[in-house]
């Protein structure tokens, strides 16, 4: 996917999706200098998570294991 980014975009921080709390997402580019520039706009790309069937993740919290079953869908879409 392609998304507009700006000179103050934090490329290190990335973003999360509450539906998959054990995952994070980030741009394919490390800085705005790596991004495509056209018509006065910088464009970054990223790959969302595509689940074609439900998937169970067992991840750790400070107090122990947490299991979630995530239904099919596209996750990590940059809002």
């Amino acid at each position: 996917m392609r998304v507009e980014v700006f000179k103050d975009t934090d490329f290190e921080q990335g973003w999360t999706d509450s539906a998959v709390p054990n995952m994070s997402f980030n741009y394919d580019q490390a800085s705005i200098e790596d991004c495509e520039y056209s018509d006065g706009v910088y464009w970054a790309t990223y790959e969302p998570m595509v689940l074609t069937e439900s998937h169970t993740f067992t991840y750790l919290t400070p107090t122990g294991r947490e299991a979630i079953t995530v239904p099919p869908g596209i996750y990590g879409v940059k809002s």
């Binding site: 990335g14 999360t16 709390p21 054990n22 995952m23 994070s24 997402f25 980030n26 790959e47 969302p48 998570m49 595509v50 689940l51 998937h55 169970t56 993740f57 067992t58 991840y59 750790l60 919290t61 294991r65 990590g76």
Partner: peptide, 17 residues
């Protein structure tokens, strides 16, 4: 984790346990 996108941010067990 059955995916090639994103990052596993918190320790997550591999999908086949």
């Amino acid at each position: 984790q059955g995916t090639t996108s994103g990052q596993t941010a918190t320790f997550t067990q591999e999908q086949n346990s």
